[in-house]
Design a protein around this nucleic acid. Structure first.
Lengths: 214, 214
DNA sequence: ATCAAGACTGTATAAAATATCAGTCAATCA
DNA sequence: TGATTGACTGATATTTTATACAGTCTTGAT
């Protein structure tokens, strides 16, 4: 059982992956015929209808009447010689109870040198929400995370509590742990570790933001 | 025999630049017709012969009989040669009047893929001060900058004004340009471009922070 | 002065690619 | 149980694209 973050069917995900692959290896989107060859379809309409479905779901954009008129809305994958096959995994949605680095959570890889951060980053997490706004952590930012099961007061941590994964400032007083937001609009989460489990997944060791407003 | 990239004519360089531009902005190579439209050619053969010339000189590869069958041998367009394979230069203190990318300003190189950002980053600047705090830009952050001499309202820019280089939100009303901080403790800088010069050095296209507090 | 290369116009056409119509088959959903 | 959706086959019309052929005009080198 795989996690469906996109609303795409399995086949549609395969087609989308093929489009990405074509962009990366050929430097241009595939034609309908090329999709057919790759999947063994005997009719170009098979490819056509898959593309229409993907476009209807917003996964791609189709330009009418143009050869290879397929676009990936979120920008297209680029080849990058020096950093290829290295870099950090970007973790997408994390299902309750699952280990954070499970393969099905890996959304993509980003060409970032793990040793750019100190201590070394192990993976990236995409920030949702503004609960750490005043710490300069905004919605959509990528956080570089160093795996660690322990934290000291004042460190910004990735914590798993009540079947939720959250990023907050860590603050422990005895058995009582508080996860503090950096935004007055949000409430701290307080956990009595004698009663409820609290797991530290890692420490925030850096931040990457791309595409500032404008 | 080696490829002589400098052996391209002015026109051929323009065509090549257009191909790169198309790849970056459209995600695919142009057709002959698109080249014609871009340059105002009235015959598709004008584009065809330019492409042949570029292919003969090794600047591109042509795939026979395929729509948009233009490839750049070095893969996807990358930055110009100066900093290739060395990551992005981090610009330190910028002396008044000196071009920002002068070699003496380069503090170090960071192993970051320029295409991580969109548009591509050309260099990094270290943030001093908190004047953009509410935009999530904190003291010590590295900003990824895309070189540009123009900006639109609302974009965060690197601007040179009154012998100072500063990062602010750009806002123009006619000849009057305001550089707005994102922090109520700081005052906007307003410049009448008829009287005082104002130069845009680049656009902020990303941010890197390492070593969060803790 | 002639020659070659570069930068085009203009016309034509085959091949590539898009787009549409008409179906089949299986699984899921109301 | 009928309707809808997804995943296709098969055929074909139409548009886009590549590419060939025949020229003009200019510039710089021999």
């Amino acid at each position: 059982m795989t996690i469906d973050t996109t609303g795409l069917t399995r086949r549609q995900q395969e087609i989308l992956a093929f489009i990405r692959h074509a962009l990366e290896t050929e430097g241009r989107p595939p034609t309908r015929a090329e999709v057919c060859r790759a999947f063994g379809f005997k009719s170009p309409n098979a490819a056509e209808s898959h593309l229409r479905a993907l476009a209807a779901k917003g996964a791609i954009t189709l330009e009418e009447g143009r050869a290879r008129g397929i676009r990936l809305p979120g920008g297209f994958p680029r080849r990058s010689s020096a950093f290829r096959d290295e870099g950090l995994p970007l973790i997408g949605h994390v299902a309750a109870g699952n280990p954070i680095l499970a393969i099905e959570h890996i959304e993509s890889h980003h060409p970032i040198d793990p040793s750019l951060f100190s201590p070394r980053a192990d993976y990236l997490l995409r920030v949702k929400g503004l609960s750490m706004r005043d710490a300069g952590i905004l919605d959509g930012d990528l956080l570089a995370i160093h795996r660690s099961e322990t934290a000291r007061n004042g460190q910004v941590v990735v914590a798993r509590v009540r079947d939720d994964v959250t990023v907050k400032t860590f603050s422990a007083r005895g058995k009582l742990v508080s996860l503090l937001p950096a935004n007055p609009d949000f409430e701290p989460i307080t956990v009595d570790t004698e009663i409820e489990p609290l797991a530290i997944e890692g420490l925030v060791v850096g931040l990457i933001r791309n595409g500032l407003p404008g």
